[in-house]
């Protein structure tokens, strides 16, 4: 997911406080920034929301890669609006994290130094125009699976950011499917591009949910805190069940020989992605890790003079206002 394999912290606070805190969550109450919360809850959330925000920001790059090559004016506008939304989503999420006592600059610093992660999916390249459809359809589709339940997460600012994001996100998935539909129903070449995009994005999309976490202590803790609502396997199954018929409608083939309908579970059986590849990507060895991070580093360092210049002007202008007021008195 956008936040993958988030390690939860062990809580070692006063047991009575902890119990009261857990009772509030169990009762469906929202935790707000000024409420008491276990330090571990705070740290885990910063890590999770931060990673989610970073994913939105880095996620601008693979799609931004095609803005200047979009084939019609309307497609260019749609893609631009979509990538812009992602910047907005990153912004909302950073703000949610900031209510926990971390600054956006701190989080950015941690992303750029490699201490914080972003979703593995954005380390895959967008090679043809059909990939822009596949990203909307599959990647945003997978993200929505996770984001919809997170609207009910226990931390108020995170839940509210998710409500806003989910409202905007459904446009993303639809535009992706619309785009790939045009490709799949187009010329032979377009169809080939659409199939190739599905071939390359299928397994990385399944990886977005993270490896099975049914036995993970981190997962158990996060679910108790309601900052994780479903297991990775549940969401992955839901995603496959939703996506397979959509691929069929397009006349595209899901690249999995073992894909088979299973009446007993009322869902599709499917192959696991290659988890070794997943861990390689996490370690920094995905096809685009270096490019993505260096693009963000460059944007940040090239922009320092701009941010500082505007801050300097604001301080000067404020000083002038104060001086004028003093002179007037």
């Amino acid at each position: 997911m956008y936040a993958q394999m988030v390690k939860s912290e062990a809580a070692n606070d006063d047991p009575a406080l902890l119990a009261a805190f857990q009772a509030r969550i169990d009762a469906g109450e929202r935790i707000e920034p000024k409420d008491w919360m276990p330090d571990a809850y705070r740290k885990t959330l910063i890590r999770q929301i931060g990673q989610h925000a970073h994913s939105e920001i880095v996620g601008q790059l693979p799609e931004g890669n095609w803005i200047t090559r979009a084939p019609t004016l309307e497609r260019k506008a749609i893609l631009l609006a979509k990538v812009q939304d992602e910047a907005g989503h990153g912004l909302y999420l950073y703000c949610a994290a900031e209510t926990l006592g971390v600054t956006r600059d701190d989080l950015t610093e941690q992303l750029l130094s490699g201490r914080m992660k972003y979703s593995s999916i954005f380390n895959y390249p967008t090679l043809t125009w059909a990939d822009i459809g596949a990203v909307g359809w599959l990647v945003d589709g997978a993200a929505i699976m996770n984001q919809v339940p997170l609207q009910r997460t226990s931390f108020g600012p995170y839940a509210r950011a998710m409500v806003r994001i989910c409202k905007e996100e459904s446009f993303h998935q639809r535009q992706g499917y619309d785009l790939i539909t045009k490709m799949a129903q187009g010329t032979a070449e377009q169809k080939a591009m659409a199939q190739d995009a599905l071939n390359r994005f299928w397994y990385p999309s399944l990886m977005m949910f993270g490896p099975s976490d049914k036995d993970s202590v981190h997962s158990t803790q996060s679910m108790a805190w309601k900052i994780k609502i479903n297991t990775n396997d549940e969401l992955r199954q839901k995603f496959v069940d939703q996506t397979v018929p959509q691929a069929k409608y397009l006349g595209l083939t899901v690249p999995d020989e073992n894909l088979k309908w299973n009446d007993d579970k009322d869902g599709w059986d499917f192959s696991e992605p290659d988890w070794n590849e997943f861990y390689d990507v996490l370690k920094g060895n995905g096809p685009c890790n270096t490019d993505r991070l260096s693009a963000r580093q460059k944007a940040w360092s090239d922009g320092a003079w701009f941010r500082d210049g505007l801050m300097a002007h604001a301080k000067k202008a404020e000083a002038r206002r104060v001086a004028a007021k003093v002179a007037a008195e």
Binding site: L91, C95, A161, L310, M311, H313, A314
Partner: peptide, 12 residues
């Protein structure tokens, strides 16, 4: 209230 953002001063 709809959210937050960063800016150097009120106008921006």
């Amino acid at each position: 209230h709809v959210g937050s953002l960063h800016a150097p001063d009120a106008e921006l």
